[in-house]
Measured scan of single mutants.
Amino acid sequence: MKGKVVSYLAAKKYGFIQGDDGESYFLHFSELLDKKDEGKLVKGSMVHFDPTPTPKGLAAKAISLPLE
């Protein structure tokens, strides 16, 4: 699924993505496929991810940034 980063707290390594389906997904650095892309996780960045339901809500897994 595609989505847009709505927040990312680099110090805490987490944030949120708004998916194309309108839902909010929890984003964690550990799910970023290329850790070098962390600096690109800023508000408004477009990402691809696997939407995954968890006991705490919806989460983004296997997060990647589109090729530039």
Rank of each mutant, 00 (worst) to 15 (best):
F16L: 06
I17D: 00
K40F: 09
P53S: 14
F49K: 01
P51C: 06
Q18T: 10
L9G: 08
Y8T: 02
P66M: 15
K43C: 09
M1K: 07
V5I: 12
A59V: 15
G3Y: 01
D20G: 05
K4S: 08
S64W: 15
K43S: 10
V5M: 04
K4L: 12
G3H: 01
L33Y: 05
T52M: 14
K36M: 11
K2S: 13
V42W: 10
K12A: 08
K61D: 03
K35F: 08
P51M: 06
L65W: 06
V5R: 01
L41H: 01
A62H: 15
L58W: 13
E38H: 07
K61T: 12
S30W: 09
Y25W: 02
K4V: 14
G22W: 03
P66H: 15
L58G: 05
S30C: 12
L65E: 03
P51I: 09
L58E: 03
K56R: 12
K35T: 08
K13N: 05
K43A: 12
D37Q: 11
A10Q: 11
D20M: 11
T54H: 08
P66W: 15
I17P: 01
V47R: 00
K2G: 11
V42T: 11
K35M: 08
M1G: 08
V47H: 00
G57L: 03
P51A: 10
Q18M: 13
S24F: 15
G44F: 04
P51R: 07
Y25P: 01
G57Q: 03
G22D: 06
A62C: 12
D21V: 02
E31A: 12
Y14F: 10
K4F: 14
S30Y: 09
D21F: 03
E38Y: 05
V42F: 10
E38S: 07
A60T: 00
L67K: 14
A59E: 08
G39C: 13
A60V: 01
F26L: 05
P53H: 12
D34W: 06
P55Q: 10
P51Y: 07
F26E: 03
A60H: 02
Y25N: 01
G22E: 04
H28F: 06
V47I: 07
D20Y: 09
S7T: 12
K2I: 10
G39K: 14
M1Q: 07
E68I: 12
T52Q: 14
A10V: 13
K2E: 07
Y25F: 03
P53E: 13
P53F: 13
L33A: 06
M1R: 06
P53T: 14
K61W: 08
F29G: 04
G22K: 05
S7V: 15
P66R: 13
S30M: 11
P55K: 11
K12R: 12
F29C: 06
P53G: 08
L27R: 00
L41C: 03
D50Q: 15
A59F: 10
P66C: 14
P55N: 10
A10C: 10
H28L: 07
F26R: 03
L58Q: 07
L67T: 13
L65C: 10
T54G: 10
E68T: 13
K12F: 11
E23R: 15
L27I: 06
V6I: 14
G57M: 04
Q18I: 13
A59W: 15
S24V: 15
E68C: 11
H48P: 01
P53W: 15
I17A: 05
K61P: 02
H28A: 12
Y14W: 12
E31H: 07
F49R: 01
Y8R: 00
K13I: 03
A60C: 03
S45M: 15
D34C: 10
G19Q: 00
G19L: 02
D21G: 04
H48Y: 14
H48W: 14
F16N: 04
L65Y: 05
I63A: 04
F16P: 00
V6P: 02
S64R: 14
S24P: 06
G22C: 07
K35H: 08
A60W: 01
G15Y: 03
K4N: 07
F16D: 02
P55R: 10
K13R: 12
A59S: 10
S7I: 14
D20F: 10
Y8V: 07
L67V: 13
F29W: 12
D34G: 03
M1H: 06
D50H: 15
V5E: 02
A60E: 01
D50K: 15
K40M: 08
S7M: 15
S45E: 08
K13Q: 07
G44A: 04
K43W: 09
D37V: 09
A11P: 09
F49H: 01
F16V: 06
M46Q: 10
K36F: 08
V6D: 05
L67G: 13
K61F: 10
K43Y: 12
V42R: 13
L9N: 15
Q18A: 11
G19W: 03
S45G: 08
S45T: 15
D20Q: 10
A62N: 15
G19E: 00
K56S: 09
E31M: 07
D50F: 15
G15Q: 00
V47C: 03
K43T: 10
K12S: 08
L32A: 00
E31R: 04
E68V: 12
G44S: 04
D50W: 15
L32P: 01
L58K: 09
V42H: 12
G57F: 04
A11G: 11
K61N: 07
G57I: 03
K12N: 09
D20T: 09
P51H: 04
P66K: 13
P53M: 14
F26V: 04
F49E: 00
G22Y: 04
Q18C: 12
E38P: 03
Y25I: 02
L33P: 03
D37M: 10
S7C: 13
E23D: 06
K4Y: 15
P53V: 14
A11Q: 11
S64L: 09
G22N: 07
A11N: 12
K12P: 03
S24L: 15
V47T: 04
V6Q: 09
S30P: 03
K12I: 06
A62W: 09
L27T: 03
M1N: 05
E23M: 14
G39N: 13
G44M: 04
E31N: 11
G44H: 05
V47Q: 00
H48Q: 13
Y8E: 00
K12M: 10
Y14E: 05
G57T: 03
L67F: 13
F49I: 00
K4P: 02
L65K: 04
K61L: 10
V42P: 02
D21R: 04
P51L: 04
D37E: 07
A62G: 11
H28P: 05
K2P: 06
T52G: 08
D34T: 05
S30Q: 08
L32R: 00
D50N: 14
L41K: 01
Y14K: 04
F16I: 08
F26P: 01
L33R: 09
S24M: 15
L32D: 01
A60Q: 01
D21Y: 03
F26W: 08
Y8P: 00
S64A: 09
K35S: 09
H48R: 12
L33F: 05
K36G: 13
F16A: 04
V47W: 04
M46H: 11
A60L: 02
L33M: 10
P51S: 07
G3T: 00
L32Q: 00
L67Y: 13
K36S: 13
K61R: 11
Y14T: 05
G39L: 13
T54V: 06
M1L: 08
K43G: 07
K40H: 08
L41I: 07
E31K: 05
S30L: 09
A10I: 12
V42L: 10
S7A: 11
K35I: 08
G3D: 00
E68Y: 13
F49G: 00
L27K: 00
V42I: 12
E38C: 05
L9M: 13
D37R: 04
G15M: 02
L9P: 02
E68S: 13
H28V: 06
L32V: 04
L33Q: 08
D20S: 10
G44D: 07
F49C: 02
D34E: 08
K43I: 10
H48T: 13
S45F: 07
A11S: 13
A11D: 12
D37H: 08
G57D: 01
K61C: 11
A62T: 07
I63W: 02
P55V: 10
E23I: 11
K2A: 11
G44L: 03
G19F: 02
A62D: 09
G22R: 05
L9W: 15
K56W: 14
A62M: 10
K4I: 15
D34R: 06
D20L: 09
D21I: 02
I63D: 01
P53A: 13
P53Q: 15
A10H: 12
G39M: 12
L65M: 12
E31Y: 10
P55T: 10
K36Y: 08
L32Y: 02
A60P: 01
L41F: 04
K56E: 08
L27D: 00
A62I: 05
S45A: 15
P55E: 11
D37Y: 07
K2Q: 11
P55Y: 10
K35Q: 09
E23K: 14
I63V: 13
K56N: 11
L58N: 08
L9F: 15
K13C: 07
L32F: 04
A11W: 12
G44K: 03
H28Q: 07
T54K: 05
L67N: 14
A10N: 08
E38Q: 06
V6A: 09
K35Y: 08
K12Q: 09
V47A: 04
Y25G: 01
L32M: 05
E23Y: 14
E23L: 15
I17E: 00
K13G: 10
V5F: 01
G3C: 03
K61Y: 09
G15I: 02
K4Q: 10
Q18E: 10
V47P: 00
L67P: 13
K61Q: 08
